Computed example of a mutant assay.
Amino acid sequence: MTSLLTLYLNYNSITSLPAGLFDDLTSLQALYLDSNQISALPDGIFDSLKQLTVLSLQYNQLTSVSARTFKSLSSLIQIYINNNKFSCIDGLAFENSLKLNLVSLNGNPMNCVPAVQYGECASCTYLDLSRQGIKNLDANVFKGFNVERLDLTGNELAAVPYSALSSMEYVQTLVLDKNRITRLSYDGMSFPSWIYTLTLDGNGMVEIDPRVFSSMTSLQYLSLYNNSLPSLPDGLFAGTKQLLTFRASSNRIASLQKGLFDTASSLQIVELMDNKIASFGEGCFDKLYNVLMMSLQHNSISMVPPALFKNMTNLKYL
């Protein structure tokens, strides 16, 4: 079977992998072992798979991997080891996987991310650390990474890990949904300027200091959906000159004050549905020249001020 390129062994009841099982599959490029009951990986089990680019081990019972487990996978591009029982990954696990650009680790019971843990995975562009119970991130945990998308959904972060993010010069998409970030406070640190997409949905957020966004000159997409914000602060958009999409639906926003959107003239999509909006400050939308879509349904609006949308000459959906 030296010519085999793809092998599907997923959705079975495999509990172990005998040594030498894959020794003849020297051309294999994709191996799917997900959704089994594998609890351990013998050292050297993948040694013959020099051409392997995709390895799926998600939804098994794995608790650990050694430094040798993936050592021979020099062509590996994507690895899925999410939804297992890992509490830690050996710091040298991906040492030789220099082409690796996607590591999926979500759904494992890891409650911290030591800096050395992924230190050899500098080529990763997508890192999924969602639903791992992470409470904090060390300052240098991502130092040297080329990650472009970082997913931290469903962890236990109570504050934005600004110090850890400051060394991630390539990250463009940051997902912090469903954590415990109830306040965005400013203590001299803010989100990095190079982020394009930021989502903070479902955190129960009640307060924002707009200075945390003051350096986000590249931001194009900001989502604050499904929080508990009673209002949007003045100066929220002061530093986000390139913002195209703003989502703040399903909050408790009661009014939109005058001047709120004066520095947000680049916006094209504004979502404010499912709030408690009952009033609009004079001319609050006057600078939204480029808006194509605005959603205001399911609010408490009883009267629309005359000329509220007068400058939205490109508006297509309301």
Rank of each mutant, 00 (worst) to 15 (best):
T15Q: 07
L105F: 01
D187G: 12
L315D: 01
L229N: 07
G188D: 10
N179L: 11
C88F: 14
N106R: 08
S75H: 04
C284R: 02
A122I: 11
Q268A: 12
M303R: 15
T197W: 02
G283S: 02
G154T: 01
L33V: 12
T199D: 14
L222E: 11
Y80I: 06
R68Y: 15
Y317G: 04
L272H: 12
S250Q: 14
N101V: 05
C121L: 13
T173I: 01
I208V: 03
M205P: 01
S167Y: 04
V160K: 04
Y221T: 05
I14Y: 01
L5A: 07
A139C: 12
T197K: 00
D274I: 01
G20Q: 02
D138P: 09
L272G: 02
S64V: 02
Y162A: 05
Q220D: 09
Y289P: 06
D23G: 03
I14M: 05
G144Y: 01
L52G: 07
I301K: 10
Y289L: 13
N36H: 12
R211A: 03
S56V: 03
F285S: 11
F70A: 13
N311Q: 15
D128G: 08
L41F: 07
L49T: 06
P161M: 12
S215A: 05
A164K: 08
S66T: 15
L318N: 06
L55D: 07
D128Q: 09
D24M: 03
G133T: 13
D209V: 00
K178I: 12
N179Q: 14
Y186F: 12
L102M: 13
P230W: 04
I38Q: 14
Y59K: 13
H298L: 07
L76K: 06
N10I: 00
V212I: 04
I77N: 10
I277A: 08
L267P: 03
S87M: 14
D286Y: 11
L174H: 07
I45C: 09
L5Q: 10
T153S: 05
V141E: 01
Q172M: 11
F86R: 09
L157K: 08
G154Y: 02
Y196H: 11
K50M: 05
G239Q: 00
A93D: 10
N146I: 05
L200M: 05
S302R: 14
Y11G: 01
C124E: 13
L33N: 10
I277N: 14
Y186R: 06
L256P: 02
L57A: 01
F280G: 06
L224D: 00
E282P: 10
T125K: 15
L318S: 09
S295T: 12
K310E: 15
V113E: 02
L232R: 03
G204M: 03
L28P: 14
T217N: 08
L100H: 06
L92Y: 12
K99M: 11
N84F: 03
Q29P: 06
P114A: 00
S166T: 04
S185H: 09
Q61T: 15
L41P: 02
K276D: 02
K85S: 14
D90K: 00
Y317F: 10
L31Q: 09
I38A: 12
R247T: 10
N108R: 01
L55Q: 06
M110W: 05
I253M: 12
T199Y: 06
L184N: 02
Q220T: 10
N111P: 00
T182I: 15
L267R: 12
I253V: 10
C124W: 10
K143T: 11
L224Y: 08
W194H: 08
S72N: 08
A164F: 08
K287W: 00
T217Q: 04
L129M: 06
